[in-house]
Amino acid sequence: MNIFRLVGDMSHLLAIIILLMKMWKSRSVAGISGKSQILFAIVFTTRYLDLFTSFVSIYNTSMKVFFIGTSYVTVYFIYQHFKPTYDSNHDTFRVEFLIVPVGGLAFLVNHEFSLLEILWTFSIYLESVAILPQLFMVSKTGEAESITSHYLFALGSYRALYLLNWIYRYYFEGFFDLIAVVAGCVQTILYCDFFYLYITKVLKGKKISLPA
């Protein structure tokens, strides 16, 4: 474990807590893409299948349980509990255009042709594009609540910090995973536009309004 990965995991944890608090306090899921949250639930489910077969540490196991659990709670909030506030008219990204190519790529490009490894690879590739429905929704609605912007900033920062973690691990541990690094770069690049808006606008108290 290194500081970059620890801060990255905490940033990821914070993002999920911000989202859940926003939903619970405002009793609303307005502006949140249910499709992205479904993709995240798929990401965690396919990545943490080794939850019961390989034990790394208490931290690792507890974080995995937390991520899987909260991802399903979030989907439940959107599609059941706070359904009346779900803005399905603006959450129209065709996720099949993500899942099919990502599934095919995971099948072709992976470290080992085994079920667990292919599912892990699928999860890594899917996570890199899972935020697209959410970013698409923000661009369609033309704006995002500031709390949603904080959620996206924390979520985008987590993988950016993982890039630093991989640089650190490459130099100090000789650890290198090309698939995770390439997907992590794609994932972080997708946030760049948002990062710019967040830093130039939200931090000055303005609301984000992506070009609709």
């Binding site: 995991d9 080794d50 790394v56 974080m63 470290h111 993982y162 995770a180």
Partner: peptide, 10 residues
């Protein structure tokens, strides 16, 4: 590149 490297990352 040892594939069976333990997946210790989240």
């Amino acid at each position: 590149h040892n594939v069976t490297m333990r997946k210790d990352e989240l």
